[in-house]
Amino acid sequence: MGTYDALLVLSFGGPEGPDDVLPFLENVVRGRGVPRERLLQVAEHYQGFGGVSPINGQNRELIEALRPVVGVPVYWGNRNWHPFGEETVLRMKDDGVRKAAVFATSAFAGYSSCRQYYEDIARISVKGGPELVKMRHFGEHPGFVAAMADHVRQALDRLGRDDARLVFTAHSVPVSMARTAGPYGGLYEAQLRRSAELVNAALGRTQPWDLVWQSRSGPPEVPWLEPDVCDHLRKTDARSVVLVPIGFVSDHMEVVYDLDTEARQVATELGLPMERAATAGVHPAFVRMVRELMDEPEPQPCALTCCPPPRRRQV
C-alpha cells in the first residue's frame, strides 16, 4: 500500500456536552462576524440533543472500522473541537509517523468542503512532523455510491413504497461560493448531481429525483443555493419521499436537526410519508473505499486559486 505509514481522519468536530456548545460554535464562526444571537439560536439545536453532536461518535466508529482495513495506525483530528488537528499531528510526530494519508470527512469540491481542509493541513503541519497528503474527492467513488444506494434501499423498505421520490440533500452554500468551486467553477453542485445520478442508477431506478439544499446560515441579503429542503417538501407533488443526505458522510447536527427534526415535522404536517436514508457512516463499502483511496497514486493538490475563500462581512 503506497508509502503512507499512517492515516489521519480529519473532520469538523462537534461538542460532547452542554458546556462545549458555545465554545465550539465560537470556533466554527471565528472571524465571520456572526451575531451572538444567531449562535444562541443554533446552540438551542445542540442543547436539544444534550449538547452532544453525533459526528464524534460516528467518527470513532469509523476509525475502529478502518483500523483492520487500512493496516496502518489511524489518528483523528478536528478543525473546531477536541481532538484538535494540531494536537493530533504533534502526537503523530512523537510516534515517528513520516507520511500520512489524510481522509477529510467531506466528499465534494468547494471552499468549506475541500479548500478549507487544505488550509487546515497547512495550519497543523509542524517542522519535523509527518508529511500530510489529502485524499481526493470521492463522491463518485463506487464505494461511496454503493454505501448510499444500500442505505436508500433500506429507507425505501422501511417506507414500504418503492415508488417514493428520492430527494437528495446537501449543505447549502452562498451562490458566489458555488460558482467558484473547482478550477472552472460550479463543481460543488455538479459533483453532487453526478453522485445522485450514480446512486439512482445503482438502485436501478428511472424515476425523476431532486437535489435540494439545507442548513443555510448566512444573512438574508446574501443569495444561497435553493430550494431549501423544507420549502421543497411543501411544494412537491410526490406522494412519499426518501431524504438522502448525499452531501454528508456522517450524521452532523445539520442532519439530525434539519432533516430528522425540522423536515420530518413539515412532512408530518403535510401528511407526507417520509423516511431519511442513513449517511455513509461505517458501511463496509465506504470503509473499503478509504483503503482504495490510499492505494491510488498520490493526488496532486489543487491550485491555490481553486475554491477561493468567501468574502467575510465587515463588522
Rank of each mutant, 00 (worst) to 15 (best):
P83T: 06
G85Y: 03
G85M: 11
E86W: 11
E86L: 10
E86R: 13
E87V: 12
E87Q: 15
L90W: 05
R91Q: 14
R91C: 07
M92Y: 00
M92W: 03
M92N: 00
K93I: 06
K93E: 03
D94K: 12
D94S: 13
D94Q: 13
D95V: 08
D95W: 09
G96T: 09
V97P: 04
V97A: 00
R98F: 00
K99V: 03
K99G: 01
K99Q: 07
V102F: 04
F103Y: 08
T105P: 07
S106W: 09
A107I: 08
A107W: 03
A107S: 10
A109Q: 13
A109Y: 11
Y111D: 02
Y111E: 01
S112M: 11
S112A: 15
R115D: 06
R115H: 10
R115A: 13
Q116S: 15
Q116K: 14
Y117K: 06
Y117S: 01
Y118H: 15
E119H: 11
D120E: 14
D120L: 15
A122R: 15
R123G: 00
I124M: 13
V126F: 08
K127L: 14
K127V: 13
K127Q: 15
G129Y: 02
P130N: 08
E131N: 04
E131W: 07
E131Q: 04
L132W: 03
L132S: 00
V133R: 01
K134A: 10
M135P: 02
M135Q: 11
R136V: 09
H137W: 10
H137C: 12
F138P: 02
G139Q: 02
G139R: 00
E140A: 14
E140T: 15
E140H: 12
H141Y: 02
P142K: 04
V145T: 12
V145F: 06
V145C: 07
A146K: 07
A147P: 04
A147S: 11
A149G: 12
D150G: 09
D150S: 12
H151Y: 11
H151K: 14
H151R: 15
H151S: 10
H151M: 09
H151P: 09
V152Q: 04
V152G: 00
R153W: 05
R153S: 13
R153A: 14
Q154W: 10
L156K: 06
L156C: 08
D157S: 14
R158I: 05
R158A: 13
G160C: 10
G160P: 13
G160F: 12
G160H: 10
R161Q: 14
D162N: 12
D163A: 11
D163Q: 11
D163M: 07
A164M: 09
R165H: 14
L166S: 05
L166P: 06
L166N: 05
V167K: 02
T169E: 05
A170W: 04
A170Q: 04
A170Y: 04
H171N: 00
H171L: 08
H171Y: 03
H171W: 01
S172R: 04
V173L: 12
V173E: 01
V175R: 12
S176R: 13
S176G: 08
M177R: 05
M177P: 01
A178S: 09
A178M: 07
A178C: 03
A178G: 07
T180D: 06
G182K: 07
Y184A: 12
Y184I: 09
G185K: 05
G185T: 09
G185D: 09
G186S: 09
G186D: 11
G186Q: 08
